[in-house]
């Protein structure tokens, strides 16, 4: 299984530290640092999920602490839109998720990792992994 986390660089200043919190050897955990959680657009979340990845997560700052003022708020709106879209097309909206933390709050990051792990356990592998089309796409160079 694979989890991709888009992490705002303010909220997660040290992506390696976040990776070290993971601890599940059989699940690939990728942390992609982003300048702001609002950099991640809905199409990016959906296409990441279609790769297929089993869970896509966004970690951003609390809305009042966003350095771009509205960035975290907009990221929240996009997340809601993506969930709604997934629901409409008959996929599990819980495959995408978002956590907001106070920049530098290690306890909140640990809690976020625990939440991601719980969510992954409850959902299991992505049904897209069984789809022949996606399997072929994944195998393609």
């Amino acid at each position: 299984m694979e989890v991709v986390v888009f992490a705002c660089q303010q909220a997660v200043p040290d992506p390696e530290a976040l990776k070290s919190l993971w601890g599940l050897a059989d699940v690939r955990f990728r942390v992609l640092p982003e300048p702001c959680s609002s950099k991640v657009e809905a199409f990016q979340l959906l296409r990441t999920l279609a790769t297929p990845v089993d869970l896509v997560w966004v970690i951003g700052c609390e809305e009042s602490l966003c350095r771009l003022a509205e960035g975290s708020q907009r990221a929240g709106g996009r997340m809601a839109y993506t969930k709604k879209y997934l629901e409409e097309i008959g996929l599990e909206p819980a495959r995408v998720g978002r956590t907001v933390v106070t920049p530098g709050d290690q306890a909140a990051l640990r809690a976020a990792v625990a939440e991601i792990q719980d969510r992954l356990k409850s959902l299991g592998a992505s049904p897209l992994r069984q789809a022949p089309q996606s399997a072929a796409r994944r195998a393609a160079p």
Binding site: E34, P35, S38, E41, G77
Partner: peptide
């Protein structure tokens, strides 16, 4: 550099 595009 990265583009942040707030279409909303």
């Amino acid at each position: 550099n990265a583009i942040i595009d707030w279409s909303e």
